[in-house]
């Protein structure tokens, strides 16, 4: 179990290898990577966050997933700062004995990340940039875990 909030890019292969290292009890690993989509008018996005609260919120989300499913490992990496189209933004990994728990835990962590971790996306560059609105569909996605 660990979380990182960083400006630097991450390496999915290296993260996966670190989580599996020396283990033979893991039967399933699910990973999700979120990427920057190109928006109309070009430019990538800038991610602002709340240092301190962000790390605590991610750790809490991960702990909730570990309490709900029997995970054998987990990892959350979230980037901040200026990100170009195509860049990786977020990584979630869940490892378990069987795939159902790994799939569900990865989806659960992503659903919570979307609207419970203090990040704010601004799309585009200069005058044309705009803050991304929160989407009702993201809030609704949380309800299925109640």
């Amino acid at each position: 179990m660990s979380v990182s909030v960083q400006a630097a890019d991450f390496d999915l292969g290296a993260e996966m290898a670190a989580l599996r290292a020396g283990r033979s009890d893991i039967g399933a690993v699910v990973s999700f990577s979120g990427l920057v989509r190109e928006v109309t008018g070009g430019g990538g996005m800038t991610l602002e966050h709340y240092p301190g609260m962000t790390e605590a919120a991610l750790a809490e989300i991960e702990a909730k997933a570990c309490a709900r499913w029997e995970l054998l490992g987990s990892r959350i990496v979230h980037r901040f700062g200026a990100l170009e189209p195509g860049a990786q933004i977020v990584l979630v990994i869940a490892a378990a004995r069987h795939r159902a728990a790994a799939f569900e835990a990865a989806e659960f962590m992503m659903d919570y990340l979307k609207s419970r971790a203090p990040f704010w996306k601004k799309e585009g560059v200069g005058e044309a940039s705009r803050w991304v609105d929160a989407r009702d569909v993201d809030e609704d996605a949380l309800k299925r875990w109640d």
Partner: peptide, 10 residues
């Protein structure tokens, strides 16, 4: 105390 818009992470 921190004030901010609804969060848009992920």
């Amino acid at each position: 105390v921190a004030f901010f818009p609804p969060m848009t992470g992920g």
